[in-house]
Amino acid sequence: MILPKIKVLRSHGRQYIPDLTEVTLTDEFRGRPELTATDDMSDVEAAAAMCPTAAITTAPFTLDLGRCLFCGECALRAPRNIRFTNDYRIGSASREALVVRAGDTAVDFRHDCVRTEIPRLFGHALKLRQVSAGGDASNEMELNATGNVNFDFGRYGVEFTASPRHADGVVITGPVTCNMAAALEMCYDAVPDPKIVIACGADACSGGLFAASRAVDRSFFERHRVDLWLPGAPAHPMVFIEGVMNLTGRWRRREAEK
């Protein structure tokens, strides 16, 4: 029957975000933290002691977004020193650039670390194969959401494929469990060269909560270069979209103010 469908359509209206470069997330969203060093660092020491993934160091004062789960407890414990902004521009081509220092006002994308063939080959279309290797389903759902009716990342030719043979790279979520290590390696091998690797979420970037677990095998990251590191637990769809657009040279994030 057609009438119920018309009703659904009318209520649905237009859902896509017209301009993805203009997206601002709610103030509540915990994105890029800003650190302020103070004479008395005892609050930071207390926050560092309770951090679930030991992402905070006090001397020098840093917060590693590759480990951070964005639980926000440190900002409550040390409000003078740590504040989470709603800035989702936190991915980087360099793992080191994910370490936020006191006074930083942006995460440096480090375009200089991007292999030159990536913008040339994948600047118009990029097909990716996703592999969950111990992901908790939230990162996976957010990656699915990048292609949904709201974000519609497909408008830029970036999509996920069913087969690694059709892909230009792999997106890894999860800390890489021992039980998935072989399957991940096979999937990577099946992607034709030249190919890229994206580590999505704190688990993939650093092992996250499972960095010291004996059930995890992170040797993949010793053998293969990661082209894009995306923080988050999970990484918000805009973290992924903004990261991939910068990686492929189509957007250019403003440089960090030195």
Partner: peptide
Amino acid sequence: YQHRGLERQFTAADNRLRQAVLAET
């Protein structure tokens, strides 16, 4: 394939916040 050793991580450190975050994941 998804086995991360989650239950063992609850006793790896006596950090209640870490345990709460482990439960969420």
